[in-house]
Write a protein that binds this DNA or RNA. Sequence first.
DNA 1: AAAACAGGCAACCGCTGGCCC
DNA 2: TGGGCCAGCGGTTGCCTGTTT
Length: 277
Amino acid sequence: MENSVKKSLIESEEVELRRGPWTLEEDTLLTNYVLQNSEGRWNLVAKCAGLKRTGKSCRLRWLNYLKPDIRRGNLSPQEQLLILELHSKWGNRWSKIAQYLPGRTDNEIKNYWRTRVQKKARQLNIESNSDKFFGAVHSFGVPRLIEKMEQNSSTTYCYPQNNNNNINSLLPPSQSYDSVSTQTYTDFSGQNSASSSTFMPDLMTDPHFMDHNTIIDASMCYHEGNGQELGGYIPGVEEQYYIGNSDISTECHVEETYEDVTQDLMWNVDDIWQFRE
DNA sequence: AAAACAGGCAACCGCTGGCCC
DNA sequence: TGGGCCAGCGGTTGCCTGTTT
């Protein structure tokens, strides 16, 4: 085929492609198709579902919005803590961070970081990736979040200890217990006192955080009255976080509990004036 | 009441790496 | 081995909505 003819054909196809916000009809088409068939081969999905969208666009819409287990609404204090911690470890590896927050998308976490966290950094004239900012996060952001967690829930915070029940179900989707280091970690004690708990082991050992002499006293996880675990942390070869109990994709108490948490859960600028230049 | 502004978020863009031929 | 295709990722853009003036 002559190049000019081929080009015009490609262009005419491109002209037909829709862009911009998705309509309800498009959402329905995509959802029905993916549920009846499967994900993957997104260009094929776009064609077969009768959508005038690129495969890329379909994939993004599905993963960030239509997928049944997507959770919406404000991030809970636990989730925010987890993001702060994981970002300090991995930087802008949004998809990797998202693996540890079931139902949250990399896009959502990225947006959270850019709009909330970086805003705080800007207000303070601190580089959001600097040690100084880590210090501010550790000394004020984290305790404030923990305070919020305690205020906004009648549940009990705890620290995991020597309990590897259901580990496989608590790991990120691609992980299994087999891949986790056998390094000892502490049990879920099930005790009803937040003050008896300890927070996030590697926060305590991470030089970024330990530089600032603050002892953190809470946990990523909490118990309801029956001692049901909903989130926690497993140090490993590569530290593993886990959130949820038997089925993280269908049950998430974190969101239910913190749905009405106020917008800004981090900290006041006034709290951390000493971190200014 | 309306214009201007700011923040939040959905969607797009460009790049990279893996797979297949 | 190299080229094409595709999925996935992180960065960026632009629209929508709420707030301020």
